[in-house]
Design a protein around this nucleic acid. Structure first.
Lengths: 145, 145
DNA sequence: CATTTTAGTTCAGTGTACTGAAATATCAGG
DNA sequence: CCTGATATTTCAGTACACTGAACTAAAATG
C-alpha cells in the first residue's frame, strides 16, 4: 500500500468515526469543532466562541444548546459580569463513546518498543503540523482547528 | 502530551483539513464519503452508490452532480444497459489540492529509518482498524467507510 | 441616575440537502 | 409489440442550521 492510499484510509476512517460520534450524540460538525476549541483553549464566553468559529452570536446559542443537551459542554454565568455566559467543555464527556477507542489505542501503542513509540509520536506531531498548514493554505485564514 | 490529547489533535486536524477541502471544492461531507467509496471499490452505478451510502436515488443525483461539478467524479452511461449510469472517481482529481500535502508527507516519512517506517505503517494500519471497529460499534451498521 | 454600550437569546427569513413520489427512459418476458 | 419491471432524474415538501435584526438584561459612562 502506498503512502498515499495510506493517508486516505486513515483520513476516511477518522472522518467516519467523527461523523458517527456526531450522529450518536446529536451534534453537528461545527458543534464538534467548537467543542475541540473549548477543550484546547479552555472555557470562554459565548461571544469569544462566536468569534473563534466565525459564527453569529445567534448561531452560537444553537451550538451551545446542542453541546449542552449532549452533555458535552456547560453554560455558566460569569459572576463578574452577569451578561456573560461562560461555556466550558465537560471533562471526559466523551467517556462512554471514547472508552473503547482509548483502550484499543492504548493496546496498539503498547505493541511498540520505546524507540518505535518515539518515532510514532514524532510522526503524528509532524503530520498534525502538515495538516494544519495545508488547511490554512486552503482556507486562507489563520484558523486550522 | 498524553496519547489521548495526541489522538484528539490528529483527529481535529484531519477533520479540519477534510472540511477545508470540501469547502474549497464545493462538496459536502457525504459527497466526500461517496467519493472515497468510489475510489476504494471502483466505479458503480448510481443505484449501488445509493445503497452503499444509505441515501435515496434522488439524493444521489445531487451527490453526483456536485462531485461532477467539482471534477471529482464522472457519469458515464452503461453501454450494456442504457438506463444505468456508472459513476467513477476521477483519477488524481485531488491533484492540485493534495499536491502540497503529498509532498510534505513524503518529507515527513523520509525522516525515519526503515525500522521506524515499518512501525509507523503498522501503527497507522492498526489505528484504521480500531477506528473502523469503533465506528461500527457506534452506528450499529457494517458500514465504516 | 439616565443614557449608551455590550452580551446573549429569540425569532422570522433563507439556503441547502434530504425524502418520497411522479415522470422519463430502457430493458425483459409473454 | 405490449406490458410490467427497473434505473435515474425531476420536483414539491420537509428538516435543519445559519443570518440579521429585534429584544432582554446588565454593565459602563457621564
Amino acid at each position: 500500500m502506498s503512502g498515499r492510499e495510506f493517508g486516505r484510509e486513515l483520513s476516511t476512517a477518522v472522518v467516519a468515526f467523527h461523523e458517527a460520534v456526531g450522529a450518536h450524540l446529536g451534534v453537528t460538525a461545527v458543534d464538534q469543532r467548537a467543542l475541540a476549541l473549548l477543550a484546547a483553549k479552555g472555557p470562554m464566553t459565548a461571544g469569544a466562541l462566536a468569534r473563534e468559529i466565525a459564527l453569529t452570536p445567534g448561531a452560537v446559542t444553537g451550538v451551545v444548546d446542542r453541546l449542552e443537551r449532549a452533555g458535552l459542554a456547560r453554560r455558566e454565568p460569569d459572576p463578574a459580569d452577569r451578561r456573560r455566559v461562560v461555556v466550558s467543555a465537560v471533562e471526559d464527556a466523551f467517556g462512554e463513546v471514547f472508552a473503547g477507542l482509548a483502550a484499543s489505542m492504548a493496546e496498539v501503542v503498547d505493541r511498540y518498543d520505546e524507540a518505535e513509540q518515539r518515532a510514532i509520536a514524532d510522526f503524528v506531531t509532524r503530520t498534525v503540523e502538515v495538516l494544519r498548514r495545508e488547511t490554512r493554505r486552503l482556507t486562507g485564514t489563520g484558523d486550522a482547528g
